[in-house]
């Protein structure tokens, strides 16, 4: 009976676009309102660049390895790693904000939108990626002023790599956010995800150096998807494509995104198993 009365009407592509731009706009708005977030996102890699890189340049020799055609300064070597670090922290920050939103209730308004949930979550990831890319370019400007010399066209060719790496790390953050019960547990993410991912990668030192000192750590670095995000960015910055990195980052993006969508799906996800409110 009701099927004759309840007629279905879907959304137009224009309405999908409105929804996507609304989610990106809100993320950008929140980001601009939270100036401390922007400053800390910028300060963190700059501290590494100004202090850590200055110290390491004297003790760490970087031999000629692709994509570099010649010896490079440590500041130059570490720049792609720090760019990826910005995206890693942004992805986790985004995860933190999703846990906060869930605790504060904002997340519910996203999830009760009539648009398909997968679309909403992907829109949220795109929004977070856009913010992370902006942060990276802000960092690149400061690095350039500091004297880090990068190929001019690299600024452009690195954009797709940043978009993909940002999306992968955002999806990982979203997946983690579904598993974190409370904000207090977020410290665990710092200890068990961010730091191991960052240090066990090629962000700070070339993998051949790691291999020389510890084959076990080298293997861990090889298994770490963040390593491939760093290398994807590094090669793209020099107008090259590292196909292995591209394949791994693309593959992990799909895995993390599907995982996050499943986790936030009310029929399969973890959220529904958490218990209800007081009423």
């Amino acid at each position: 009976m009701s099927s004759t009365v309840a007629t279905r009407r879907g959304f137009t592509p224009g309405q999908y676009l409105i929804c996507l731009s609304g989610i990106v706009w809100r993320e950008a708005l929140r980001f601009t309102r939270q100036r401390e977030r922007f400053v800390s996102a910028l300060v963190r890699p700059l501290v590494w660049l100004f202090i850590f890189a200055a110290g390491f340049r004297q003790i760490l020799g970087v031999s000629i390895i692709p994509p570099y055609q010649t010896y490079v300064l440590y500041e130059v070597y570490v720049t792609p790693g720090l760019m990826a670090m910005i995206q890693l922290f942004n992805g986790m920050q985004s995860s933190l904000s999703m846990v906060y939103d869930r605790e504060m209730g904002n997340m519910r308004m996203l999830l009760v939108s009539p648009f398909p949930r997968a679309f909403l979550l992907i829109s949220k990831l795109l929004a977070s990626t856009a913010v992370s890319v902006l942060q990276v370019y802000a960092y690149l400007v400061v690095a350039w002023l500091w004297g880090v010399d990068l190929p001019p066209w690299g600024w452009l060719t690195v954009l797709p790599a940043l978009a993909l790496a940002g999306f992968m790390l955002g999806a990982l953050g979203m997946l983690l956010s579904s598993a974190i019960r409370q904000l207090e547990n977020f410290a665990g993410v710092m200890n068990f995800v961010i730091f191991p991912m960052f240090f066990a990668s090629s962000a700070l030192y070339p993998l051949w150096l790691v291999e020389q000192s510890s084959p076990v750590v080298y293997t861990i670095c090889r298994l770490n998807p963040f390593t491939y995000a760093v290398e994807l960015i590094r090669f793209a910055l020099y107008m090259e494509i590292d196909w292995v990195s591209l394949a791994v980052v693309a593959g992990m993006t799909v895995v993390f995104t599907l995982g996050a969508i499943l986790a936030y799906d009310p029929s399969r996800g973890l959220i529904a198993r958490r218990g209800g409110g007081p009423g």
Binding site: T12, Q15, R26, G105, S113, P278
Partner: peptide, 25 residues
């Protein structure tokens, strides 16, 4: 909802515009 679901960091109007976007308006 029983729990507050407004975004405290943005304006009243921006909260409403965000909701409108979530409904394709």
């Amino acid at each position: 909802f029983q729990a507050r679901t407004l975004d405290l960091d943005i304006s009243v109007r921006d909260n409403l515009l965000y909701h409108a976007a979530l409904h394709g308006i």
